[in-house]
């Protein structure tokens, strides 16, 4: 024999743990090699000895001691809650019940929201129509119209409006710049005031963007 088989393989052969591919080759070598055969025999004897001393000779009293200790440490069974035997339900039933409760809660919430959305028109916020003169102010518009700005929120909360956020900015506020009425010191009578500038305030869907257009009766808007 030129080369001996690895000792580890002989050790595996002793317990027939070698893979099928290696088993025959190693067994063939061992059958022809005296030293490897002796090693294999010693492994087999040792393995038998190990199997023989499986029983550690533990006394029965020790087993009893362990069992009693375990039984003493077992958690006590949970007492029944009141006198409702239906309360003790299986996990599957509990799951079904929880699902039903969740579905009922979801439907209830949806219905409540829907009912509030479809309230009668009388309860909705009344929208003030924009006076035509205020919406399209002319240079000589009277000051009474200009003094009544329309709050933007009242228009925005109209529930019947089917508008998207990307619509062009609406004319919300058309207010001429405050003009003091001129008083003739001779007659002490109020003369009709002629506004110098008209300011138009345009609010867009973005609350941070406001367009202010100033129109002058003498010149073009800027």
């Amino acid at each position: 024999m030129k080369e001996h088989v690895e000792e580890g393989k002989i050790a595996l052969l002793a317990g027939e743990d070698l893979e099928a591919g290696q088993m025959s080759a190693v067994a063939f070598h061992v059958s022809r090699c005296a030293s490897c055969s002796a090693i294999l025999e010693s492994y087999r004897q040792r393995r038998q000895a190990m199997a023989a001393c499986r029983d550690l000779g533990i006394r029965a009293g020790e087993f009893v001691e362990i069992r009693q200790s375990v039984l003493a440490r077992l958690p006590a069974r949970k007492p029944r809650l009141g006198s409702f035997p239906w309360f003790h339900i299986a996990p599957l039933q509990a799951g079904v019940l929880a699902t039903l409760l969740l579905a009922a809660a979801t439907i209830g919430t949806y219905a409540w929201k829907r009912a509030h959305e479809l309230q009668p028109a009388g309860t909705a916020v009344q929208v003030n129509p924009i006076p035509e003169a205020a919406a399209r102010p002319s240079v000589g518009a009277p000051a009474e119209f200009a003094a009544k700005p329309i709050p933007a929120r009242k228009i925005a909360r109209n529930p019947d409006r089917q508008t998207s956020r990307r619509e062009p900015p609406a004319v919300i506020h058309a207010a001429p710049a405050p003009v003091l009425a001129a008083v003739d010191p001779q007659t002490q009578a109020h003369q009709p005031a002629v506004p110098d500038d008209v300011a138009m305030k345009l609010e867009t869907s973005d609350p941070s963007v406001i367009i202010i257009w100033l129109a002058s009766p003498k010149g073009a808007g800027r």
Binding site: R54, I58, E62, F63, I66, R67, V70, L71, R77
Partner: peptide, 24 residues
Amino acid sequence: AGDPRAFEQLMISFQKQVLCTAAR
């Protein structure tokens, strides 16, 4: 099902296996 005697019998069946393995 909550029978303590059955559990004790179960322990008796496997006590040697568990204790010997642990001791080794």
